[in-house]
Each structure stands twice: as C-alpha cells, then as structure tokens.
Design a protein around this nucleic acid. Structure first.
Length: 291
DNA sequence: AGCTCTTCCTGAAAGC
DNA sequence: TGCTTTCAGGAAGAGC
C-alpha cells in the first residue's frame, strides 16, 4: 500500500519524464473516486505539466492550462492519492491495459499516463491555484523535514495512542500502517502507548526511527506487499526488510520472541511483546484481587 | 473536543 | 472440492 516511500518513488519516476509534456486527451472509466470528473475532461486537454512533487502520500502535478484564453488562467494542481491499490504508470497506447484502469491521459510524446486502482480507495482532485494553500494547510509536517522539537510538540502532549497519532495525516503527513509499525519496533515502543506518557528520550528515539525507516524504504524503492508498483510498473524491495509488519507468529529479529498482532486505532498492529513492552495497566477503582 | 469505530471497494486466503 | 466469510486499510464521517 502506497505510503510516503512508495509515493516518493512514483514521483521520482514521473518527474524524470513528464515535465514539459502536454496532455492531449483524457479518457475516463469509473469515476466515483474522482472529485469532479467533468472538470478533469474539460480543463486538462491542452495543459502542460510544469512540475511533479509529493505532499505526504499525495502525488501533485502542477499544470499550466492551454487552449483558448490560457494566458489569463491560473495554474492547476492535479492531485492523486493512490489509496490502497492505486497505480500511476506511463505506458504506450499499444501496451495491454491492466484491469481496473480508470483514467488515461494521452501525452504529446505519444505515451499515456494511466491510473489503475482495483479497490478505488484512491482519489483524484483538481485544485486551482487559489485553493492549494488550504489543501496543504490540512496536512501535517513532512516526516523527513520535521525537527525533534516540532515532533515533541506535536506528539508529546497528546492523550491518544502513539500508533493512532503516527497515522494522523494532520500531524505527520505520509506515514501509514507499515511504516508506523516498523518505526515503533525500531524505537521499542508499544503501539498502544499513550503519547503523553512517553519519555523525552522515547520521543527522540521514535523521531529518529521514523526518519531512518522512511529513508531506508525510499532507498529500496518502497514496499510491494500486493499491488504497489512504481511509474514503470516495477515492484519495490523494502518488504524484505520488514521486521514486524505481517510477521505474526514469526520470531523477532532481535530477541526471538514471537511477533504478535493486535488492533490499535482500528488497524492491525504488529509488535514484539518483549522488545516493545505494553503500557502499564491503568489505575482502576476496581483493582484486580491478587492471590 | 477529542478520540475510536464504521464505511467504502475488490480479491486473496481462510474456514467449513 | 466449492461456496461463504474474513481480512487488508486510507481517510471521511458517525458515534461516544
């Protein structure tokens, strides 16, 4: 599932060949995951792709409108979220079309940019320049650019479980279930720990672990569990380095204890019960009788 | 207010 | 063996 490292890999691939290209035509299949499919079909043909960047888990394509009256039009931002199973690939029109491919952008160099998404948990939005600041403002800080002080300020006072907070895109943008679990394992912090009860040292260790895990995953071009591929259709390699994610019952690489799975914040959470001790039982008005 | 749970979707895998 | 159920999960929205 595409999280920050996977989206970064896709963006790097697209950035290598798409800037400068002009979108000639848009063809749509199912559109229930597109905010305004009519706007896509009407406004994109003739537009030039100026730049491609990543914002958390979003792919952001900056477009300069073409066609009549283009000079007076402000830039557009084509925003793509890959959801669970989204794929953004460049192909040739003669290449076989993967099932569940719902968007085709014909380019002026004869290629096609295609969006494929089996479960359609992804999203596509077209945002005018005037509203892009509001969109960005809803997202938290970029994990690889967050200082320790900022990290402590965002997490240290919160009463929620640390796993839920790591997944909150309004706090930190780009971390999903895989990298939350892998980061918590490296920092030796149980996913159900209350953030405000972590020590300053634990917050510092977690801050470093998040950055190390994401950097290592980018280097290996992301994790391919089921559907993820980059813009050329190639799988990533980081799934081989997962130490806890989807390793329930297998031995911990550090201590040999069996990895366990619990649900935290509605998500499967994998951890080592010895390396990541659970939160202390809360003080209760009905204490358990000891024998 | 701030959190947790449910919902959307499809296909793979587990269960009976 | 073959059908049914469960599970995966990002993020919006409901509920507590």
């Amino acid at each position: 599932m595409p999280e920050l490292p996977e989206v970064e890999t896709v963006v790097r691939g697209l950035r290598a060949s798409l800037p400068g290209r002009i979108i000639l035509d848009v063809r749509l299949g199912k559109t229930d995951f597109i905010d305004d499919p009519v706007a896509l079909a009407e406004q994109l043909p003739g537009a030039r792709i100026a730049d491609i960047s990543r914002l958390g888990k979003f792919v952001c394509m900056e477009l300069v409108p073409g066609g009549p009256a283009a000079s007076s039009e402000a830039r557009l931002h084509l925003i793509v979220h890959l959801g669970m199973t989204g794929q953004l690939t460049t192909r040739h029109p003669a290449d076989p079309v993967a099932p569940h491919t719902h968007v085709f952008f014909a380019l002026d160099d004869g290629r096609e940019l295609r969006y494929t998404d089996i479960r359609r948990f992804g999203r596509i939005l077209l945002i005018p320049e005037s509203r892009i600041a509001v969109f960005r403002g809803r997202l938290g800080s970029e994990p690889l650019e967050t200082t320790l002080e900022e990290f402590r300020a965002r997490f240290g006072l919160r009463r929620a479980r640390i796993k839920a907070l790591l997944l909150d895109q309004g706090l930190l943008r780009g971390v999903g279930n895989i990298y939350a679990d892998e980061s918590l394992f490296r920092a030796r912090i149980h996913p159900a720990r209350i953030a405000a009860r972590l020590t300053q040292t634990q917050l510092a260790t977690l801050h470093r672990a998040v950055r190390e895990v994401l950097t290592a995953a980018i280097r290996l071009r992301g994790s391919s569990i089921s559907d993820y591929v980059d813009s050329d259709g190639n799988r990533g390699e980081f799934q081989r380095r997962h130490r806890v994610y989807r390793r329930e019952g297998k031995p911990c690489v550090r201590c040999g204890e069996k990895i366990r799975r619990v649900i935290v914040a509605g998500r499967s959470s994998y951890f080592c019960p010895r390396c990541q001790p659970p939160p202390r039982a809360q003080k209760s008005r009905h204490p358990v009788k000891r024998t």
